[in-house]
Design a binder for these strands. Structure first.
Length: 291
DNA sequence: CGAAAGACCTGTGCGC
DNA sequence: TGCGCACAGGTCTTTC
């Protein structure tokens, strides 16, 4: 499941493979992959030059120049959803089973393919919006910075977090508060900080929030160092390779296995139509927990 | 406005 | 063998 570290792995691959190249063609093979577009990628993309590859949280985008000299005013924004892949493929190779969009370049080098089994992901051509701290695609201007951006303000996050009337995990997954954290790294960060997922945000001290932020940054940094987390072939880098951080997960997906810290069997709770994994001893349930 | 629930998707694995 | 169902879960939309 691509969260911040996995998307960053993909961004790095794209920066290496597509920056500076001019798009020759775009072909859409599934309408759902481009559902948020007003125009047609096949007519909007050709002739534009990829300036770089950027990321905020789980979104990534390719700023596009109209010609090699002009500044980028638009971008091709991508969200991988649950199962999206951006792959660099030699032209002429057979189509992948769930190939949704194909983008070729005028140098006849490797083409960019968007492959997505569950079709939660999408590509979107959009304007870039200049903001005080950073230029970002217009459609994601409402998303909070991720904890690795200089635009991320720890003090402001702490303030806003504690004003919420909700549980800590729900807040961690709220991309308007902090972006990039998904179900896996939320559970891992909470375990490291010894916090139960239902802990009411208003009961957290500034020190505990700092500890949680440090844990989130640490676990995502470690995951990035191992190429991200893959449970199957659904998450791969631009070369189709899996990461191996799943071996290092302490609680996520480890129901009934011993907690790496105290040996207590890990529990699984139903949470927001998904799962939360935690250690019953290290992360005791709060009396006034919030979902 | 914030909080929470529902909708959107397909492949896999399980019980019967 | 085959069927139905639970599960995986990020984000946008809807509802209160």
């Amino acid at each position: 499941m691509p969260e911040l570290p996995e998307v960053e792995v993909v961004r790095r691959g794209l920066a290496e493979w597509v920056a500076g190249r001019e798009i020759a063609s775009a072909k859409v093979l599934h309408p759902r992959a481009v559902r948020r577009n007003e125009g047609d990628l096949a007519s909007l993309l050709p002739g534009r030059v990829v300036a770089s590859a950027e990321r905020r949280g789980k979104y990534l985008w390719l700023p596009l120049r109209e010609d090699p000299e002009s500044p980028a005013e638009h971008a091709l924004l991508a969200h991988l959803g649950m199962s999206g892949q951006l792959l660099m493929i030699e032209p002429g190779k057979p189509a992948e089973k769930h190939l949704r969009v194909r983008i070729t370049f005028n140098d006849d080098g490797p083409e960019l393919r968007f492959v997505d089994q569950r079709t939660f992901g999408h590509l979107l051509f959009c304007p870039l919006a200049v903001r005080p701290l950073r230029t970002v695609p217009e459609p994601i201007a409402h998303i909070a910075p991720d904890p690795f951006e200089t635009a991320f303000d720890d003090a402001e996050f702490t303030l806003r977090l504690r004003k919420r009337l909700t549980g800590i995990k729900r807040a961690l997954l709220d991309q308007s508060l902090i972006s990039g954290v998904g179900n896996i790294y939320a559970d891992e960060a909470l375990w490291r900080a010894r916090l139960h997922w239902a802990r009411p945000t208003e009961t957290l001290t500034g020190g505990k929030v700092a500890e949680l932020l440090a844990a989130a940054r640490a676990v995502m940094t470690e995951a990035l160092g191992e190429g991200g987390t893959s449970f199957d072939r659904l998450y791969v880098n631009v070369n189709g390779e899996s990461g191996y951080f799943d071996r290092s997960l302490a609680v996520y997906g480890r129901r009934d296995e011993p907690c790496p810290r105290c040996g207590t069997p890990i529990r699984r709770d139903a949470f927001m139509n998904r799962s939360s994994y935690s250690c019953p001893k290290c992360q005791p349930r709060p009396r006034n927990g919030r979902w």
